[in-house]
Design a protein around this nucleic acid. Structure first.
Lengths: 144, 144
DNA sequence: TATTTATTGCAAATCTGTCGCAATTAATCG
DNA sequence: CGATTAATTGCGACAGATTTGCAATAAATA
């Protein structure tokens, strides 16, 4: 069992939820992966789990702060929250669709927090998506 | 005709699309407004336009860079892009759902652009959503 | 104003996400 | 470990969101 999996079990147990096979499957599907769309997640788990179960599990995990939704391109995707992965943001290539994670940047995080404060907000989470052309697509667009 | 409306017509014409009544209606519905959900937009235009037309127009406007989708809470909303409004981001209250626009902040924008550059990305757009508690909800949560 | 082509409305089809309920599984306790 | 209890799941049905084909209509062009 991975450390994250152990954490998951703690989280569930401490909040009075059972540790079930479906919940473990959904969690593993998201572990150490780039964000997935709901359709992708259902496709991965779908052979073993009912669609409704995947939806219910995602809902529960969101409530528990285990996963969060982030917008990527036109859709939202699901990924583990910072407790189970590393805080990061996303670069999306509008040409090829490739998603690159941006590792945490203190200057950026500080600015975000100052802004929230300036608006009298107590921030709990935030997401940033930068859309544009990745290096490969810039090169190929020059060639064309 | 507003300046923006003129710009819209230029955009459409220069890319070979017709300037139609439905397209004008959808554009006006979004002009000078907070971001709308698709359901809200359909409700506003729905009496004059077919649902399918609203969807098709939104798709076209996204392709043309006239409108963009931003994530607000768990849903996406639609708003005019920077060429037709002012660049801004969003604070979403996770308690009452209120959305507050954050006016442009140079320090933040600079950092975003530097990061994109560091990853060899040519950025075209970006969006930031900060989730948390607004001032009013912080006060009421203390009272409880 | 007539012609040509793009665009729209309509209806049907498809996805997405939700719900109630009976069957199953996990947790608890002896 | 096996029986009991309560939570969870799978299934089928359903409501809402989004897409599509096609005939009717409107915009652009000359």
């Amino acid at each position: 069992m991975t450390l994250s999996e152990f954490q998951l079990q703690q989280q569930l147990k401490s909040r009075g939820y059972s540790i079930t096979h479906p919940r473990t499957i959904v969690f593993k599907a998201l572990e150490d992966k780039e964000a997935l769309t709901m359709a992708e997640l259902v496709a991965i788990c779908g052979q073993q789990l009912d669609r409704a179960t995947v939806y219910r599990t995602v809902g529960l995990f969101e409530d528990l702060g285990i996963i969060r939704r982030v917008q990527i391109g036109w859709k939202y995707k699901l990924e583990l929250t910072d407790s189970f992965s590393h805080h990061h943001h996303h670069l999306t290539c509008t040409n090829c669709g490739k998603v690159t994670p941006i590792i945490e940047d203190d200057a950026l995080e500080d600015r975000i927090n100052s802004l929230a404060k300036a608006y009298h907000f107590t921030p709990s989470d935030h997401q940033i998506e930068i859309r544009g052309l990745c290096y490969a697509c810039q090169l190929s667009s020059i060639v064309e």
